[in-house]
Every structure is written in structure tokens, then in C-alpha cells.
Amino acid sequence: MQEMIRFLMENPEVIEKLKSGTVSLVGLDELEVQAIIKVFSQSVTPLGYWK
């Protein structure tokens, strides 16, 4: 899984292809694929400093 996440981070165009259904991730079910799409589609905002 870690290698797959690294691959997706290095190749963000694959996420768009996952969304459109033109590629699939072997070994993952639909719920796992949707979770990956959701995580990679969210914008990340810094949390700032803890006080």
C-alpha cells in the first residue's frame, strides 16, 4: 500500500484517471479506491502552531 501511495503522489494524473474510470488499482475494492480518491482530492491546509 505504501508503494501505491508513493506512486500516486508522484503521478497525480492517475488520480484523475481513477475518477474517470479509465484505470483501476489491482487488489483494491471500490470502497478503498473511493477513499483514495477522496483523500487525494481534498486540499490540505496547514494546522498552524499548537499553543
Rank of each mutant, 00 (worst) to 15 (best):
T22G: 02
L47D: 00
V26E: 15
Y49V: 05
P12H: 06
F7R: 14
Y49T: 04
Q34C: 06
E13P: 08
S24R: 12
Q2N: 11
R6K: 13
T22Y: 15
I5R: 11
L28I: 12
W50A: 10
F40D: 02
I37Q: 00
L28W: 15
E32R: 13
D29F: 00
S20V: 07
V26C: 09
F40H: 05
I36Q: 03
V44H: 03
P12M: 07
I37F: 09
P46E: 02
I37Y: 00
E10Y: 08
Q2P: 04
E32V: 05
I36N: 01
Y49W: 05
G48P: 13
F40E: 00
K51P: 11
P12A: 15
L31K: 14
L18H: 02
F7P: 02
Q34D: 13
E32S: 12
I15A: 05
R6E: 15
F40A: 03
D29I: 08
W50T: 07
N11C: 09
L47K: 07
R6P: 10
E10S: 06
Q34Y: 03
K38H: 15
W50L: 12
T22I: 07
V33D: 06
Y49E: 08
Q34I: 05
E3M: 14
E16C: 05
V39H: 02
Q42Y: 04
P46G: 10
L31T: 07
F40Y: 05
E16R: 12
P46W: 00
K51Q: 09
Q42P: 00
V44C: 03
T45S: 01
P46H: 04
K17P: 06
V44P: 02
V14M: 11
E30W: 04
I15E: 00
L31V: 05
L25C: 04
R6S: 15
P46N: 02
S41E: 08
V44Q: 10
L47E: 05
A35N: 13
L47R: 08
E13K: 07
E13L: 15
S41A: 05
E30V: 14
Y49P: 08
V23P: 11
I5H: 10
L28D: 00
V26R: 14
G21R: 13
M1A: 01
V44E: 02
I37H: 09
V33N: 04
S43G: 03
V44N: 01
G27L: 04
P12W: 07
V33Q: 13
M4H: 00
V33P: 00
S20H: 07
L25Y: 12
R6T: 07
S24Q: 14
K17C: 06
F7N: 13
V39R: 03
E13S: 05
V14G: 01
N11K: 14
E3G: 07
N11M: 10
M1C: 12
S24A: 10
E13D: 12
D29M: 01
M9D: 13
T45K: 10
E3T: 03
L28T: 08
Q42V: 01
L47G: 08
V23G: 01
L25F: 08
L18A: 03
K51W: 12
W50S: 03
L8H: 06
Y49R: 10
Q34M: 04
L28Y: 09
N11S: 10
V39L: 06
